[in-house]
Write a protein that binds this DNA or RNA. Structure first.
Length: 894
RNA sequence: GGGCGUUUAGCUCAGUUGGUUUAGAGCAUCUGCUUUACACGCAGAGGGUCGGGGGUUCAAGUCCCUCAACGCCCA
């Protein structure tokens, strides 16, 4: 074994071994435990957010697998409609080809080719991380099975009247040429202008009403001017007509509360086809919307001479012309909220179009109740509010997208009913297949019905919403579905609570009558060291695969877990992975050290022969088992706490204390040691092995590779990944009194080391040590274990006394129950010693004073619980003794 | 404008239901160490009164109010 642990050598080997052994598949007949992966986009590359998200899932999966659950971590990828289509379009663009040149069928074929070639990248990256997904069950949202589930859901929702087609104002991305859901629109604060434009009255062109707008280019879609009914300036104009500049149209002045007298001129143009507020106003006043723009965001025929101009060019031209005509009254700088597309970044255009919608209220109500009742709970709990606030307005979900890559909507227009052409009023049928559609159309419209399928595809999230059951074979009644639905924990980030989590909840309830998971764990966001989001454009990302190459997957995982405190964002920099790497190296070296002695020396523990340190470390192990087990158990999920408990135990207790104490005994030379020493060695080695075996099991969810390697190195044949989780109650664990004795001895070591440090005595230089106990009882307790002290520091003569006197030229220290003295003739500086002791005395007196004050407070003694008061009294008493002792020690110095 | 989060040692963060010591850890800093597992190491040390103000309580970093700064989400 090398003194440096090198992860590169073993990670691939173990991953393959696990897969070959089928270790990732659900095993046995235990209770099921299931996690479905948030399917990464098939175009994706692993980023730090993925690394965190998947490490968390893997920790849980491995933990539960070790506990004997029939564990399934269901993997898969998402077809990510817009993202994937864009990637392939960009690739084609390099060859000078547009998707329109290829046509729909060819283009979709190209995307599938792309998926075949590059879609596996992220899966391989997840493997590098150590993810123990059941890859034999890998799914893709556009697989035949999942597509079947999509069609089934669409048909059933339609049958139940929950899907409708309608003309609504939607968010339109001119660049991608598709509708967007509200959540796909990001509003960006931008510097803009507020223009005031004069609209002349129809019956008196010399008189004007001045309207204020941020979007003058939509004026050809204006159908009215609205003023507030209470606005004295305009009351007399209500009901009159104005002439829309640049057109022959006249439009009415109406009264509507939407017009805010305090904003701009108090009069606003109403453009129902291109503004969400105006759309509502239009509905209230029965005004027919006028579409003034094409889908590519150029103006249409309504705009007269501006027809065909792109929207922002048209804006400039219109404003220039208005100004020339003397119709531009004012320009004001203003910060506006610009709606932009979350994918393309283009300015989103509200547009009146026919789209497909899901009627949300009947679905949202039970989904809200699921969280309200606690059947589904968020960790941290505060995210339940985000979920509720999104669902509660019951806004219908626009599910159609004008893309080619995705699930084509299973609706067929019966064009034979409308002269073979698709029109607004063409009837349609919704069905699971074209055959089913044809049958239905035939029964309704006769044998000559001609069908054309809807061209739109479904929103990507429509299929992700079904993920917890579509991946398990629904709508089939599969054994997997039977066993693994509902799943247990969903691990994701806050960004997709409504895109995804809410939609899975209502879909699960609707189609399987059960919530899809009982716990939603929302982890923090990974930020760079300055606290900024990592992004490609900023170039501040840290590549997990690069980090895995440099530090090892275990180090990356462990570092992330120690940083994962509930719901907090994580400021990350590569140095943080050093913690993980150093920790792996520490463990590696502890094993390396004992390994040569392990072979022939393991035997059952004989209680009578166990050393105090043995009993102590076994008890500390038990405590660690408890902490880790409780911390990882949903819904507690305190990953950092578990990781830290393991770090402390391994480094401080197991390595720094236990191993150092037992070092000499363990390394006794088999050939020359006495029989007694050999017996002691066997016991020490066996304790070491016992602790190590359980420790690597506890660590395995966090650091799967190194722990598996160690298990093999110490000669265990079976795989760690499928072994079993330890439980507390290790035979030989020390009792409370033994633990106290050990802690006292460690305390004595601490004090001695501190004194030696003060006098900068090199570690190799021995000093004598006198431990003077206040009573014989304590001395008898400590006496058999004095080697604990002498093994942890270079001690010359060690004396255990009762009320011993302080030797000349010695430094003094206090422990609860006695003094220690270190003779330092020739080294001791009385002045330094005095300073040291005076400082300690000051602290002790300060503390004593606080205690006294507390206990003199009658209301404290009266109101506080008896055990708290009693505790304070004990503390005061021991502090008093401490002060007395320090005074004596100081007096001794003269 | 509404909601949520954060503010504790130079830096990054713990501190679960208010009551274990004089508020902890890692990194950084300083001192001393090639002690036969580990310098990705060992042994020490210094450093904060917990963003400001007010309140509840016998007792508050921990609960309440308020102000401020930073961040996120929504409008």
């Amino acid at each position: 074994m090398d003194s440096r642990y090198s992860p590169q050598d073993i990670e691939e080997k173990w991953y393959k071994t696990w897969e070959d052994a089928g270790a990732f598949k659900p095993q046995g007949t235990g209770k099921p435990f299931t996690i479905v992966i948030p399917p990464p986009n098939v175009t994706g590359a692993l980023h730090m957010g993925h690394a965190l998200n998947n490490t968390l899932q893997d920790v849980l999966t491995r933990f539960k697998r070790l506990q004997g659950y029939r564990t399934l971590w269901q993997p898969g990828t998402d077809h990510a409609g817009i993202a994937t289509q864009s990637v392939v379009e960009k690739q084609l663009a390099k060859e000078g080809v547009k998707r329109q040149d290829l046509g729909r069928e060819k283009f979709v074929e190209k995307v599938w080719e792309w998926k075949q070639e590059y879609g596996g990248r992220i899966v391989n990256q997840l493997m590098r991380l150590g993810s123990s997904c059941d890859w034999s069950r890998l799914r893709f949202t556009m697989d035949e099975g999942l597509s079947k589930a999509v069609r089934e859901v669409f048909v059933r929702l339609h049958q139940d009247g929950l899907i409708y087609r309608g003309t609504r104002l939607i968010n339109w991305c001119p660049k991608l040429q598709t509708a967007l859901a509200d959540e796909e629109v990001e509003s960006k604060e931008t510097k803009g202008h507020f223009w005031s434009i004069k609209y002349p009255l129809a019956d008196n062109p010399e008189e004007f009403i001045v309207v204020s707008t941020t979007r003058p280019e939509t004026m050809f879609g204006d159908v009215a001017v609205a003023v507030n009914a209470e606005d004295e300036r305009y009351k007399h104009l209500i009901g009159k007509q104005v002439k829309l500049p640049g057109t022959d149209r006249t439009i009415p002045i109406i009264a509507d509360e939407h017009a805010d007298p305090t904003k701009g001129t108090g009069a606003v143009k109403i453009t129902p086809a291109h503004d969400f507020n105006d759309y509502e106003v239009g509905k209230r006043h029965n005004l027919k919307p006028i579409i003034a723009m094409n889908l590519d965001a150029t103006l249409n025929h309504q705009a007269g001479k501006y027809a065909g101009m792109p929207r922002f060019e048209a804006r400039k031209a219109i404003l220039a012309d208005l100004e020339a005509a003397g119709l531009l009254a004012a320009v004001e700088d203003r910060v506006i909220q610009l709606p932009t597309c979350y994918r393309s970044g283009d300015v989103v255009e509200p547009y009146l179009l026919d789209q497909w919608f899901v009627y949300m209220k009947p679905l949202a109500v039970p989904a809200l109740e699921a969280v309200e009742s606690g059947r589904t709970r968020f960790v941290p709990a505060r995210y339940a509010k985000i979920y509720r606030d999104w669902l509660e307005p019951f806004k219908d979900w626009c599910i159609s997208r004008q893309l080619w890559w995705g699930h084509q909507i299973p609706a067929w227009y019966v064009v034979s009913e409308t002269d073979g052409k698709r029109r607004q009023d063409t009837p349609f049928v919704v069905a699971r297949s074209v055959e089913e559609a044809q049958a239905e159309a035939t029964s309704k419209y006769g044998a000559h019905a001609v069908l054309v399928q809807e061209e739109d595809v479904l929103d990507t999230w429509f299929s992700s919403a079904l993920w917890p059951f579509s991946t398990l074979g629904w709508p089939g009644k599969t054994p997997e579905l039977e066993t693994h639905y509902p799943t247990d924990v969903l691990v994701t980030d806050r960004g997709i609570i409504y895109f995804w989590v809410a939609r899975m909840v209502f879909s699960g309830i609707k189609f399987l009558e059960k919530e899809p998971f009982h716990t939603v764990y929302i982890h923090g966001t990974i930020l760079d060291e300055k606290g900024q989001r990592m992004s490609k454009s900023k170039g501040n990302g840290i590549d997990p695969i690069e980090m895995i190459g440099k530090y090892g997957a275990d180090a990356v995982r462990f570092a992330l877990m120690i940083l994962t405190t509930e719901g907090q964002d994580i400021k990350l920099s590569p140095v943080k992975f050093e913690t993980g790497r150093n920790f792996a190296n520490k463990l590696w070296n502890a094993v390396r050290f004992v390994l040569p002695h392990l072979q022939d020396n393991r035997e059952p523990l004989r209680m009578g022969e166990l050393h105090l340190a043995d009993r102590w470390i076994l008890a500390r192990l038990d405590e660690t088992i408890k902490t880790v087990t409780e911390s990882l158990e949903p819904p507690t999920l305190r990953f950092s706490e578990a990781a830290q408990a393991l770090y402390r135990f391994t480094w401080d207790d197991f390595c720094s204390s236990y191993l150092e104490i037992r070092k000499r005994v363990i390394t006794a030379d088999d050939a020359t040691a006495t029989l007694e020493a050999l017996a002691a060695k066997k016991q020490a080695v066996s304790v070491f092995a016992t602790v190590l075996e359980k420790l690597i099991t506890l660590l395995h969810p966090f650091m799967p590779f190194i722990t598996e390697e160690i298990r093999q190195a110490i000669g265990l044949q079976d795989l760690l990944i499928t072994s079993s989780w330890p439980t507390a109650g290790t035979p030989g664990a020390g009792n409370a009194e033994e633990m106290a004795t050990m802690e006292l001895l460690l305390k004595i070591v601490d004090i001695t080391r501190a004194i030696r440090g003060d006098y900068t005595i090199p570690p190799a230089q021995a000093t004598d040590l006198i431990i003077s106990c206040d009573n014989a009882d304590l001395r008898e307790r400590l006496k058999p274990h004095a080697d604990v002290v002498s093994s942890l520091e270079k001690v010359g003569a060690l004396k255990l006394e009762v009320n011993g006197s302080k030797p000349a030229f010695s430094a003094a220290g206090l422990f609860p129950g006695g003094h220690i003295y270190i003779p330092l003739e020739g080294i001791l500086d009385p002045v330094q010693e005095k300073v040291r002791l005076t400082k300690e005395l000051g602290k002790a007196e300060g503390f004593m004073a606080t205690q006294e004050k507390k206990l003199q407070n009658e209301s404290f003694v009266k109101s506080a619980p008896a055990d708290v008061v009693e505790g304070e009294r004990t503390k005061l008493q021991s502090q008093k003794e401490r002060v007395e002792k320090l005074k004596v020690a100081l007096a001794d110095l003269g």
